[in-house]
Design a protein around this nucleic acid. Structure first.
Lengths: 261, 261
DNA sequence: TTCGATTTGTTCGTATGTATT
DNA sequence: TAATACATACGAACAAATCGA
């Protein structure tokens, strides 16, 4: 038996070619393969992936290489590992999702998923700013949805969501309205669009008459204004969200540096 | 030669005892040891640590275990690695520090270290809120410093810093004023206090008369108000900072999810 | 309840590649 | 060129968690 070279298990159609076409480290190639399969829905929403040993055999690399690839995806909150059970694609309903992507916390430290109520939904054309943010042509068709979010029964957040029609070709408002999950999970289940990265820009703004009325605060009240762009694994812009938060009883919490301890 | 057990190199006084007293994984024990040495100033500010092989010998563990411990400290922005050169304790002046801890960015995407001008500095007593945040008794002596920070010559941020006298027993205002580095680096160099973790709470507030005057904005203007607690490796509160940011030409930027690509 | 199979978690050791000096 | 140090990859072994028979 030949032990001089790793067995490439050439029979497997997913085996990575040794040496050739690797623009970088092997574990990153494996990571991309796994991310691609995730995007393609091969293992969806809370389901378990094949074991590390099986993935190693499939890609014809050592278990340690698969392990490093999975480790990065875990750090990015795309996968979660459970000893003795397996590795799972994160559910966008899970606590880890709340932990990772929702930063509005009550003054008493309470954190929960907000309840959502739709205010409006209509087709609009991309203005210059939206065209730039969403990488579409000016005037391109967008879908605009406005929501009011409540925490413990109190209206706290006004959201304006804009998504390119091109990314969601068969967007169905009724289905959106009747969803019983988060918006991101709706994107993924219904349109196979997975949000992997968010960039948020926070500033303070004085409430205009309409938002003041919707949030039940005086005109001119200082609100936290958040502009947020969501993109997929490969950087494609998917959603732009314009958020106004009443910070009378809530704050946006951000933790930097060491995580544990 | 006995190969049945890893050689514990018992000659080294830093060697970790096998099996005994390990409340968790070995690599976490190594990580704590390294962090403790960092705190003690064994390798300070931008200086290089011993090589991974040397550290492995010192703690009598395998190179892979040291590598994992260092990897976590790198993720937490406490160390930086450079292939071919070594592993370094982060300098609080470095770009990685700016990247990790300073989130105020110009509307054009420009990011820079702010210029600081001291407005006031005096001894105060801890009120109830400060006592709770800084883990000191009510009425305990604090040092309070107020600064105005400028970006590109424009005054953008008003800071009120409060630190417990107990943490900085021989605090010297003249030295603080004349420092030519960041405040965190001053803490570390002058008082051997290393900030490892920040928790920021952001909200919107209307500018009162004093802050409006200092920032050169109208009274009632919406400002971004940031309350930030800084702690050391072991969770000891070190500094509470109260920050008011004019977001006319700047925003607080936060990136979530995948970091690269 | 116990046992065994499966899967991830941790640790070890080694070899080779690449960047820096 | 040579030496040093980190980066990547491999494979092996055992521990710990989980789950079902």
């Amino acid at each position: 038996m030949d032990l001089s070279r790793p067995k490439t298990a050439s029979g497997s159609r997913d085996a990575l070619q040794p040496g050739a076409l690797l623009d970088g480290p092997l574990y990153l190639a494996v990571k991309r393969r796994i991310a691609r399969s995730l995007m393609a829905g091969e293992w969806g929403q809370g389901e378990s992936l094949p074991s590390e040993a099986q993935l190693a055999a499939r890609y014809a690399v050592s278990p340690g290489t698969v392990r490093k690839a999975i480790g990065e995806l875990v750090n990015e909150h795309i996968l979660v590992r459970q000893a003795g059970r397996g590795t799972f694609a994160v559910s966008h309903d899970s606590d880890s999702m709340l932990e990772a992507y929702f930063h509005i916390v009550g003054d008493d430290g309470h954190k929960e998923f907000p309840a959502s109520r739709m205010v409006s939904c209509r087709a609009v054309a991309a203005d210059a700013a939206m065209a730039q943010q969403l990488h579409v042509a000016r005037g391109a068709p967008l879908i605009q949805i406005e929501n009011l979010l409540s925490l413990r029964g109190e209206v706290v957040i006004f959201d304006r969501i804009r998504v390119p029609r091109a990314v969601f070709p068969d967007f169905d408002v009724a289905a959106f309205r009747q969803r019983d999950t988060t918006i991101f999970r709706f994107y993924q289940l219904r349109h196979a669009v997975t949000v992997a990265r968010l960039v948020e820009r926070l500033r303070a703004s004085n409430a205009g008459p309409r938002i003041a009325r919707l949030l039940g605060v005086p005109v001119g009240e200082a609100l936290l204004a958040i502009e947020r762009l969501a993109t997929t694994y490969d950087g494609t812009p998917v959603e732009f969200r314009d958020r106004h938060v009443s910070t009378r009883h809530h704050a946006y919490v951000n933790v930097l540096g060491m995580k544990g301890g």
